[in-house]
Amino acid sequence: MVNFTILQVVLLTLLAFIKHVDYYGIPMIFVNYAVFWGLITGVVMGDWKTGLVIGGTIQLMQLGVAGFGGSSIPDYGTMAIIATAYGVTLGSDTGLAIGLPVGMLGIQLDVVAKILNGFVVEKSQKFCNEGKFNQMNAILWVCPALFGLCAALPVFVSVTLGQPAVNWLLEVMPQWFLSGLTLAGKMLPAVGIAMLLRYMPTAKYFQYLLAGFFLSAFLNVPIIGAAIVGVALAIAFYQRAERDTELAAHASADAFIGEDE
């Protein structure tokens, strides 16, 4: 059984609010990265280590996943906060099982906030055209507050109303569900990595992907080691690209002179 104190509920809700305002720009430090929010929640709950472990686990699922151009992605930070809040008492696996569904639901709220923001911005521009410049700026602060609520509401509901539901769920939750979620946690980094590869010139420079895979799969080189090899390869690539640009410049200059004659 889990029982949160009023202070914990307030702090967790506030944390979620701050997290999302940070995520959308002010000041965009932790950008919803689960490892940090798990750690911070752990500190709030008085068990930073569990928070760190849970945050790290979710961070792996988050690898390579980033929301661009207003696309909505699962809310991994909220997942980390809820999973840690419950995980401190119930253990990290159970915490994750509770946090994961809420994080997935976060996507829907994000869309609502973006729609509401449209009205706020419209109003702001109206103030501008009426010459009410102070109001024009002031009303825009509604927008980050709306985004803050997108995380604060799910967290608040999860740690208050959600408690009986969670306790009930824990009693009936089958083992296959829990172990299935653990496996999902191991498989999800593949989706993130595939997403990352999609934004990179993967097809064109497949050889470097192979090199990195070889280093880890056959030689057990850790990530930092692979990064060092990657830097070496990148420098070689850069030097070659510079030389090619210079040669191309010369070639076109020669061609120009040739035409002139």
Partner: peptide, 9 residues
């Protein structure tokens, strides 16, 4: 990036 990602896989 690709080298590191290869290692990550």
């Amino acid at each position: 990036g690709l080298t590191v990602v290869g290692c990550l896989i």
